[in-house]
Structures are given as C-alpha cells and as structure tokens.
Design a protein around this nucleic acid. Structure first.
Lengths: 156, 156
DNA sequence: TGGACTATGTATAAGCA
DNA sequence: TTGCTTATACATAGTCC
C-alpha cells in the first residue's frame, strides 16, 4: 500500500501474504480501537485465518461477548430494523466503480481505438446480482438473521 | 488524524464525533475488506453505536453468521473450508471489477501525468497504545483469545 | 446532511539489520 | 524470523459547498 500501490487481489506469495496479514491485522485492530475510543462505539471483530486455522476475537472476549449480549437485549423489532449489512455500502461502491470504469473505458476506447477486448463488459455486472436478493443461492433468508437466532443462549 | 494530530480520547463534540465516526467507519470497513481480500482471511465485524442505537454486522449478516458457524464446527473445519457463500461470490466479482479498474487507471495515469507529495518526520502518537497491549482497557488478554476458548462448546 | 477538497498524519511494502 | 527504517500510498480533520 505504499512503495507500491495496492493491488486489490489476493497476495499469491505466501511469505508476503503472511507478512502483509500481520501488519494489516495490527493496523486494523488499531483502527478499530481508535474508532471505539474516539467515537465511543463498541467494535467487535472476529478474524478467521484459514491458513493458520485460527480464530481470533478482538479486542477481547469480554467485549465481544458484551456486544452480543447487547444485541440480544435490544428489542426485537428495533433490532431487526436497525440491523444492517454492508450490502448497501457495497452496492454504492459497485455502482461508483462501474461508473468510473465505464467512463475510463470510454476514454480508453476513444484514445486508443480498436483493441480487441477479451470479455470486458464495462456495464453493470454485479449490480443486477445484488439488486435482487432472490437471485442468489436459491433459498436465501428473506430477512437478516436475528442475532438471537445466530447466537442461542451461550451456556457458560 | 490529519491536519491535527489525533488525541486518543473521546471526541466530546457531538457533531465532530459523528462526523469522525462516519469517516472512520468507512475506513475501517475498507481496511477489513482489504485484509480479507489480500490475505484471504475471514473478517467479521460488529459495531454497536449507542448514540444511534444501531447495530451493524460486516461484511454482512451471512458472513458473520458463517464465521460463528465455523466456530461451532472447529473440530471438523475442513468440511466448511471451501464453502462459498453468496458474499464471497459477490466479492470475487467486485474484486475483478476493481482489478480491471485499477489496471485501466494505471494506464490512464501513465498516459496522463504524476502527482507530487510531501512527507516527513515519523512520530509516535497512539502507537504506544498498541506496542504495549497492557495499556488498553485495563485487563486485556495477553494474546488474542482463540475463539474456541471464548465460546466453549456451545452445544450442551 | 453528504459529497468534494487539501494539508497533514498514518499505514505499510520493501529494504535492511 | 522479527524487528527497524524509509519512501510512498492512504486515511482523514478541517473546511467549504
């Protein structure tokens, strides 16, 4: 992300990926801690690393547990109403990306001319997929799963 | 965090805090998404904002749920390792889009021009906070807690 | 509110110890 | 590795719309 630009894709090289992982994990946790402190919100992060087959909870188990306890305590209606996913963020992002891509693509075509494209469609690609939730893997939850369902009473 | 140094403390001013929250939330999510994509780890974040009484699950409910499902399946994890969720599918598409955009963007920059930048003196600010883990919120775990410890066998 | 902008602080990829 | 250092890319506080 510096010295070289970030290539937004999996880092293939094992060593580099692990290295990057370590640094970025630290950075992410710092950021989440800052968010928590500066803005007084509760942030719980869980990371699953398939390479190490490890699962981490941040900032610690108590906070994570408290977060989920709070979740449980929220009135059901309110909870499901306020419960959001990044889907909207994602959609916005995708739209912007696609708009940008399209513009740039048009520019390229203008400036360039005939360059055989393999299969590049500078058109809404993912959008349709996202706009209708029903198109996914068949039976999808009609509504976000309530956390109380996700986390049944934790028996100590 | 720029223009002025970060004061590692609650932002008292409501407007500023909310503003900061919005920006930082966006940044945090971007970071977590990058971590996920670059290093191929699963990152689930839950944020509870007492001011808005809102609860967010990132990248979405399904991923968070899957993460926790994995917890339950820890002993027989390999089975679910390659399970591809709708979200992962989506993100793969996004990833491709962004790679494409990036390539084109680089081409544009090459053909266009560069940028100037300035940088200077490195100084520790919040750093100490992270370098010694004990400075966090009092009793912090000496190391990230493994989830299997956090959530002992949830099934009675 | 919700973008843009810009100056500056941060994060981090490579390099090196 | 495990950590520093450094050069650069990125994030973002303050500001103006």
């Amino acid at each position: 992300m510096t010295r070289n630009k970030v290539n937004y894709a999996l880092i293939e090289d094992d060593t580099k990926r692990k290295f990057s992982y370590t640094k970025r994990l630290k950075g992410l946790l710092k950021k989440s801690d800052e968010l928590k402190t500066l803005c007084d919100v509760e942030v719980s992060t869980v990371i699953y690393d398939p390479y190490r087959n490890e699962l981490y909870a941040f900032p610690n188990n108590n906070v994570v547990r408290n977060t989920f306890i709070k979740i449980k305590e929220l009135p059901t209606l309110d909870r499901s109403k306020k419960m959001m996913t990044r889907e909207e963020f994602t959609m916005r992002r995708i739209k912007k990306l696609e708009e940008k891509l399209q513009k740039v693509h048009e520019l390229m075509i203008k400036a360039d001319d005939g360059e055989g494209s393999t299969s590049n469609a500078p058109q809404p690609i993912v959008e349709s997929m996202l706009s209708s939730r029903d198109n996914f893997e068949g039976p999808m939850d009609p509504s976000p799963l309530l956390f109380s369902e996700m986390f049944p009473p934790m028996v100590p």
